[in-house]
């Protein structure tokens, strides 16, 4: 395993132990001293430690994992799960938006529309990707491709991973809210199967603008909510550093959402999080998409619209009282 470039606070004891093991292994390689026993002991200990840390993750720690800079992004899944990808970048209105990647490709050999929010690694790429925060152009590109998917009868597979739609002057001038709103309606009307997978952060309307799908899947350490914990605390407490408190109050983990009946499946991540093993994370996602797609493909176009409508129509908690 390659040494992670970035370690979260709660990962540190584990990473320290692992680098010690790696050191001993290197010394053993010289073959003058045998550390096999020692190594085995430490490896056991590391496994125990990992299980311990990850068995009791707080919501805030989950949010941090979802934002881990080594976490696989949309393109990391795209490269592993799809073949024959043809990226389509045009919104035909104003500009290309690299915070959303989209195009047609094959999944298990079958042509599909695949798209997702795309974050960058490092400053330069993050500038290009705008930290995964789309402008109206990104949503309008998506909308155009939804129309194509509908016309050519291609299933739609979406990866959600955004800190939110971009709040900027230009974005407002060009109708950020209208662009998202239109996607909600267009996605609700598709008569082809649609599946979204929240792979990291699912923040607010910027996430939902690609998320009105027949199935909603979530990676184990992803989060999805109406607002980011920091923005929530900045409104409630006028203090954006209280994210930890808000993360708990908002109930934003995959487990919470499964309990509420919002997500259809939690996709397990590799031990220690998806960032520790991109290949295994992608395999788990492949299995889940394959299963849900097979189920949805049994439905007629009309049934797919009704299935999705009923799913969202039922969301909400209230009573009727006189």
């Amino acid at each position: 395993m390659t040494k992670p470039a970035h370690a979260l606070d709660f990962e540190r004891p584990l990473i320290a132990l692992e680098s010690k093991i790696a050191e001993l292994k290197e010394l053993s390689g010289g073959a003058r001293v045998d550390f096999t026993d020692e190594i085995q002991k430490l490896e056991k200990k590391a496994k125990r430690l990992q299980a311990e840390i990850f068995s009791e993750l707080s919501p805030w720690q989950t949010v941090q994992l979802a934002r881990h800079p080594n976490r696989p992004y949309t393109l990391d899944y795209l490269g592993r799960l799809f073949t024959d990808f043809f990226e389509l970048e045009g919104d035909r209105r104003f500009a290309a938006d690299r915070a959303i990647v989209a195009g047609f490709a094959r999944f298990d050999g079958e042509p599909v529309l695949v798209m997702g929010h795309q974050k960058g690694r490092g400053t330069k790429e993050n500038m290009l990707r705008n930290f995964g925060m789309p402008r109206p152009e990104g949503y309008r590109k998506a909308r155009r491709l939804f129309d194509l998917a509908e016309r050519f009868r291609r299933p739609v597979i979406i990866f959600i991973d955004t800190p939110g739609a971009y709040p900027g002057i230009g974005a407002e001038e060009r109708g950020q809210a209208e662009a998202i709103a239109t996607n909600l309606e267009v996605m609700s009307s598709l008569s082809v199967p649609s599946i979204s997978v929240v792979i990291g952060e699912g923040a607010s309307g910027g996430a939902l603008g690609l998320g009105v799908t027949n199935r909603i899947l979530m990676l184990q350490y992803a989060w999805y909510n109406v607002i980011s914990p920091e923005s929530c605390s900045s409104i409630l407490y006028r203090d954006s550093t209280q994210g930890k408190k808000s993360a708990e109050a908002l109930k934003l983990t995959a487990k919470d959402l499964a309990g509420f009946g919002i997500t259809d499946e939690i996709i397990p991540e590799p031990e220690g999080g998806a960032h520790r093993d991109h290949d295994l994370a992608a395999e788990n996602v492949r299995g889940a998409i394959r299963r849900h797609l097979a189920e949805l493909e049994k439905l007629s176009p009309e049934q797919l619209v009704v299935d999705r409508y009923k799913k969202f129509r039922a969301m909400g908690v209230f009573t009727t009282e006189e």
């Binding site: 909600l184 609700s188 607010s204 309307g205 939902l208 998320g211 009105v212 999805y224 909510n225 109406v226 908002l250 109930k251 934003l252 919470d256 959402l257 509420f260 919002i262 969202f312 129509r313 969301m315 909400g316 908690v317």
Partner: peptide, 11 residues
């Protein structure tokens, strides 16, 4: 109301 509020947009 967290995620329920968000989903009202879709509904």
């Amino acid at each position: 109301e967290g995620i329920f509020s968000l989903m009202q947009m879709a509904k």
